[in-house]
Design a protein around this nucleic acid. Sequence first.
DNA 1: GCGACAG
DNA 2: ATCTTGTCGC
Length: 236
Amino acid sequence: MRTITGIPEGWPEDEAAALAVQDALRGRVVRDETGPAPGTGTVTGIDVAYDDERGVVAAAAVVLDAATLDVVEEATAVGRVAFPYVPGLLAFREIPAVLGALEALDAAPGLVVCDGYGLAHPRRFGLASHLGVLTGLPTVGVAKKPFVFAHGEVGPERGAAAALLDGADEVGRALRTRAGVKPVYVSVGHRVTLDNACAHVLALTPQFRIPETTRRADRLCRDALLDVTAGWRPGT
DNA sequence: GCGACAG
DNA sequence: ATCTTGTCGC
């Protein structure tokens, strides 16, 4: 199913307003729940594609069976871009469309796997945490590139990891999902433990570096964007 | 002050 | 994120 989403009422218009929202919501992140067990129930991948030229955004949510990684359900949402890209404020750009796709699902999402960071964020409230707090769902962030926290060497074998430390607090982990291939960066979003988040990511990467959830969502949102973009007339 | 900077 | 040719490798 594909829906059309608007920008929520009161959505921040500028950076100052966005920072205030992060300040107001960051205390609502729940870190003392283990979260769903890997390999059971469903896991949902989220991703977003843009056509900045036209100000159009497309989001996808793909629900997988956690045990088989088969697709259970897919949903997309298209709309207008709600915020410019600003490092540290990615959530304000992605979340409106993502909410539209999630709301279009009939299946229970289970753990939501986001493209980006959760707690390993300059103000400890990245996209995954923000989405988790707004939806109440357990979320995890899986980023492809380092952001604010450095880490030590990661062993060459699959499953090896290095901590992302904010002082003594481990806010994320660089995790090798394929031997000899660059690691991904896992961080807790909401209502999940870092250990459990990493176990999920390993269960979602039997073959490729990137979790099957986000690979599927990536393809789907790109296709959705092309559908909207095809035959576009200059004017709207 | 100067760069770096998830997607 | 997106743009975008060739090139190396399974």
